[in-house]
Design a binder for these strands. Structure first.
Lengths: 153, 153
DNA sequence: CAAGATTGAGTAGTCAATCTTC
DNA sequence: GAAGATTGACTACTCAATCTTG
């Protein structure tokens, strides 16, 4: 392994900074969400996506694509959320293999209650210190990385 | 909740882009590391930190601080790694409450084997498409966020 | 056989409680 | 009592296998 091209200091700083910033921000948001609303990040992501969908219902595979989750992860997640009364799963009329996720009244209530605090948390712990230029630079960077990943297959 | 200041489109793009980019890159790196070296991200992080320490040994609480992990997480992680023969835990001479982590021969071998491919993966899936300016902008952004988090307590 | 979805086993991380030494 | 570290119970994610319908 003599020919390995290691990361330069510049590259290390950027990469480790990215990892660390994500981990630290995620930890704060997770604790706040859990304490204030009794929801995990995963719960929140599911509730947001379903509540934003056309009629408050979404095919499971579409939700999986939106979240970019493994299908088994989503299936386990929905089972736990259904057990807690946040969503229901209903069979699909047009394709009998499929199913739809629908928010329950409690699910709608949970996301309505959780969202304002969560948005405030995202501001406080992530967006607040960033200038307009930094914000746009970040969007540019993440979209560059995502486009490059997609282009690789 | 009428007074909630929701995220603007600009803010949403930056924030969701950050989350998505992290998740997608992390997923690729995790699979590659697992398949090529049989290591998890967590294993890799521990091995890197201990191997970079002065004499290849590190107090557990210092490792915890470097990783910014909960102490119970680290304890579980070290127990599993010790069971697999990657590290050992040794009592500390100067403070009998404490312990040190030391890499085994197998642990040193594992990180030596895993590192070149991992560095290449980080390049391929994250650094490659970024310009010098983007790289520095990212460092600036993540350090701004981290400094702001630290300043909040 | 492929697509949509679920299941079970194994591994990981969190929280609260605990133990020992400072 | 606080710091360093461990444990146990619980929840969550991954991988491979499975089931059903297209």
């Amino acid at each position: 392994m003599a020919g390995t091209r290691w990361l330069s200091d510049r590259e290390q700083r950027a990469w480790r900074g990215f990892l660390t910033a994500y981990a630290r921000v995620e930890a704060r948001l997770r604790r706040s969400l859990q304490q204030n609303a009794g929801l995990s990040d995963a719960d929140y992501a599911v509730l947001v996506n379903v509540s934003e969908a056309p009629h408050g219902r979404l095919r499971i595979f579409q939700l999986g694509a939106a979240l970019d989750w493994e299908k088994s992860r989503l299936s386990h997640q929905l089972r736990r959320m259904e057990a807690r009364g946040l969503v229901t799963r209903e069979g699909c009329d047009t394709d009998r293999r499929g199913a739809e996720v629908v928010l329950t009244r409690a699910g709608r209530s949970a996301i309505r209650c959780a969202a304002p605090q969560h948005v405030e948390d995202v501001r406080r712990w992530f967006l607040a210190p960033l200038s307009r230029a930094q914000l746009d630079a970040l969007t540019d960077i993440t979209e560059t990385v995502l486009a490059h990943l997609d282009a690789q297959e």
